[in-house]
Design a protein around this nucleic acid. Sequence first.
DNA 1: TCCGTGCTTGACAGGTTGTCAAGCCAAACG
DNA 2: CGTTTGGCTTGACAACCTGTCAAGCACGGA
Lengths: 169, 169
Amino acid sequence: MGEVAKQAGVSRQALYLHFTDRTTLFLEVSRLADSTARTPARQRRIDEAPTARDAFREAIALQAFLKPRLKGVATALDVLRRNDPAADVAWKEREHARLQRCEQVVQRLHDDGELASGWNVPTAARCFWAVTSQRVWDDLVMDQGWSTTQYCIHITALLEDALLAREER
Amino acid sequence: MGEVAKQAGVSRQALYLHFTDRTTLFLEVSRLADSTARTPARQRRIDEAPTARDAFREAIALQAFLKPRLKGVATALDVLRRNDPAADVAWKEREHARLQRCEQVVQRLHDDGELASGWNVPTAARCFWAVTSQRVWDDLVMDQGWSTTQYCIHITALLEDALLAREER
DNA sequence: TCCGTGCTTGACAGGTTGTCAAGCCAAACG
DNA sequence: CGTTTGGCTTGACAACCTGTCAAGCACGGA
C-alpha cells in the first residue's frame, strides 16, 4: 500500500479514504482494467463474424490481444485469491463470465455442425476456456518466450484440430 | 511459520535451525513431495510403452495422477515465486524438467511418424506441456469440479485430436 | 562425570496492514 | 467577507509476520 500511495503521489492513509482495504483496491483496479481493455468493438468482431469458425478464431485472437494488457491485474488477483475470500469471489465471477463467452462460441459451432464428434458443448467450452486461460498464456509467452503471434497461431491450431469437425477443411 | 511449527509440534525457532528461511522450507518440502510422488515405476510405464501413442497416453495419465498429490506444494511454489527469486528459480527448474519429459514423448511420436502434420517437436511439446500444467488441472478439477477421470479423458482427447496424425484411427 | 547437540523460552528489530485523532487548505456557500 | 465542508496530511498506534539473538534446559554418549 505504501508503494502504491507513493506512485499515486498521495499519502498511504489517503488510499483508505477511497478503498476499504487492499483487496478492494485490487478488485476495483482489475474491474477498471477489464472494462477499458475489453471494448465493445472487439466483442462485436466475434458476434458478427460470418461463420462459426471465424467467430471461433476471433475469440482466440481476442484472448491473445487481452492477455498482455491484463496480465498484471489478472496474476495479482490470482495470487491474492489464495489468501483472500473476497478476491476468490471476484476471480470466480470474472472467469465465470469468460467461460460463458466461451460457451457461446462453442454453442455456435455446435449449431452449425462444426463441433468435432465426441465433444458436447459444456465439455468443449471448458477445454477451450482452460486452454485460453491467463496461466497458459503466462507459461507460453512469459516463461517460454513465445510472441503474441506465435501464441495465437499455435493455440488456434491446437483448438481447431481438437474441436472443429474436419470435412474439406 | 508459526502454524507450521505448531503442526510439527516444535517451537517456531526450531524451524530456523533446520531451514534458513521460509522459502527454503517450501523448496525442500516441494522437492520431497516431488520425489516421493514420482516413483521410477510410474515413469517406466511411459518409457516402456509399446508404441509412441501409448507412451503419449501414459504421460497424460501420469500427470493426472500426480496433480492432486502435488497441488499443495505446486500452487504454494507458484504463488511464492511472484515475490521470491529463489522460489522462481526452483519453479523454473521444476517446469524445465517437466518440459523435457514432454519433449521426449513428443519426439518419440515424431520418430514414429505419429505427430500430426503442421507441428514440429519443440512447439508441440510446449503445447503439450502448457495444457498439462498444474494450473489447467486446477481450473478444471478444482474450480470446475471435474473428476480426475474426466480430466484425463478430455485432456487426452484434446491432445490426441490436435497432435496425433490421423490415419485409420 | 562432562560435554555436545538439539531444542526451548523470551526478547528484539524491521516490515506489513489497518485504525484513529488532529489539523491543514482550498473551494464552495451564505 | 467569514464560515463551513470535503479531501488530504501528519503522526501515532495496535496487531501481525519474518528472521535474529542470547541464555538455558535435557538427554545421550565418551
